[in-house]
Design a protein around this nucleic acid. Sequence first.
RNA 1: GCGCGCUUAGCUCAGUUGGUUAGAGCGACUCGUUUACACCGAGUAGGUCGUGGGUUCGAAUCCUACAGCGCGCACCA
Length: 720
Amino acid sequence: MSIELLKTYNPKEVEDKIYKLWKESGFFNPDNLPKRHQNPFTIIMPPTNANGSLHAGHGLVMTIEDIMIRYKRMRGYKTLWLPGLDHAGFETQVVYEKQLEKEGRSRFQMDPKELYKEILDFTLNNKKNIKGQIPKIGSSCDWSREKFTLDGDIVKTVYKIFEKMAKDGLVYRGKKVINWCPKHQTSLSDLETADTEQVDNFYYLQYGPFVIATARPETKFGDKYVVMHPNDERYKKYKNGQKIKLEWINGPITATIIKDEAIDMTFGTGVMTITPWHDSTDFEIAERHNLEKEQIIDFRGKLLPIAGEFVGISIKEARPLIIEKLKSKGLLVKIDENYKHVVKKCYKCESIIEPQIKDQWFIKMKPLAEPAIKTIEDGDIEYIPEHYKKISLHWLKNIIDWNVSRQIVWGIPIPAKICIKCDEGIVDIDNKISVCPKCGGDVRQETDTFDTWFSSGQWPFASLGFPDSKDYKEFFPTDVMETAGEIIFFWVARMIMFSLYVTGKIPFKTVYLHGLVLDAKGQKMSKSKGNVINPLDLTEKYGTDAFRIGLVVGNTPGTSLALAEDKIKGYKHFGNKLWNIARFVLMSLPDDMSTVLKSPLTPEDQKLIDELNVSMKEITDDMDQYRFYLAAEKIYHYTWHAFADKIIEESKAKLASEDEKIRTSAQRMLIEILTTCLKTLHPFMPFITEEIYSKLPLHPPPPERADGGKKLLMIEDWPV
RNA sequence: GCGCGCUUAGCUCAGUUGGUUAGAGCGACUCGUUUACACCGAGUAGGUCGUGGGUUCGAAUCCUACAGCGCGCACCA
């Protein structure tokens, strides 16, 4: 054949053209696929946070999911990959607040409506930007079904489910100790705090006849209950409820003895005073004994009037001053300077979380977790890698109620009214309630928004149009949820719970979890370290195909991946190798292919085809078992080191043979192996394979093709 | 404290249900410009598979103890 291909493959010339071709074919949309595509295969894309640009992790998500979808599409499934974008509540609000800070502004000086509008503009901008970036990875998702987490129908579903939960008694609003971030001025769920070990001073203080120990003297102003274990022999002369008078930080007080089994007799002195407003253990003790609770620290992290002379001072500044005073009063017994303990911090800004009592909306989790535990234990959901199953079960079995209220504007408003008189919270999705049903008082609109995971937990069925849509009926439950191992609790476990509760079905049959994408040295990427890799820089430099297969080969699910540029570069070379293989094969073929395609194979060539089929069987097996890291490596190895290095080298003699049978057999063998390699490589390297495929002299397209004869590799049959 | 991982060639990692001389990529070294490709080809070196014990005809693979590293969860003041 005459050949017009250059010696070097140029991704830039090819990629945009090919993506356009795919998109225009309509095959991203399952409804447009040819007749043979009957059984649905569905992946809901984890909605991409619309608060920045695509990062390396997105590159991995888009690649793995596209591999799954392209493979199943070629195997004849009716494939739906539903793309989505996420308003990403708190995450986005944090990003935006940082931007405000840089501009010397603050959200606390802004009208909430104005702030909301600004963040909305910011998000919509990012959304547009990201939508332009996703195709650069080659993602064959169905853009006609794209969803955004703030779409009207999504919000409607979320409201309905919230109302249902309220009716089922799964929602309550209560005064409990919550995690308060003093910087972000919102409560956070337990998952949004990070435990950090640190070394602090541990102060032993004289409290009447007792010595108590604390790391937080600034909370001790209001401590008027002293607690010990009922079985502690050392303190058996003190009786529960007994009053004692003692000198404390700001003068004489009367303390009450409380006996409670929560006390660890072996820790410290076995005696402690409690601060129920700022500690959940203390809160529980206070609840058990019906004790008074008093706020000591305000929501900004400053001391309240109960602290007397220290009022208005921040915790950090107050602590040494208080210790100084205690010392001068002779109440400081000793200081242990090596006290190792764990403090909770805001996972975004690392501010120390200040526990506070606050009225918040909670979801009762035990009734939701139990069916999920059963389903997972029954093996209805496959976890890849499997150990995530244990991790999930462990979390589900120890689950605690979920605070879903956030004091931020960016998110879905909680549809409820709050009674101004008695503080009752009333779920009101239709905005009809104007009088408190409990006390008859006036009500105000709730201003808190939902934890973003409350709505994303409902994403698989909400995005498909639960409960009445055709899509929901056809594509739910979905097949695979592919997402980051990091959000196994935040998202995966909650989707399972929500889905079972709302639809009675599992949301997906398989969970495939990938690890973190790290930099070449194996370090976590962060803007402050300056080691962030922009995936689009790599696709620009080495081509998208090289980026994709480089990301997948050797990357076992669940383990983090060091993204080395050299590796991507290596696969660019592979792309070029493939390109030249195609050039060689095409050069070796005659202009008229009709005899070649029907030509019988010599036993020697037949053996090569048989060996190819054995390899393909193995690769198909790996694909079915989600071992893409192995499948990719095998097809790479076959193409380069079997096909190019051996089969093609040996074919040169055959092609030069005097015997026409040997020549045509070799030609047929070459085109068949090349075609098979292209098909098998297509999920990993879609652009170059599609481009080469379009140049091959092939059989006429099968008659049932909906595309009127366009030879798109994308919908060809998978070999084997 | 409880739980989950990881430890294999200089580096990054595979090794699927235990089975012949343990693999790949990158890197190193030697040779080679043969007309598909130097983004190439032919070849070489390099590992007591973290340590000790056990199961087995046979273990990198299963069990157990220990060590080192990483991560998650937890209300020890």
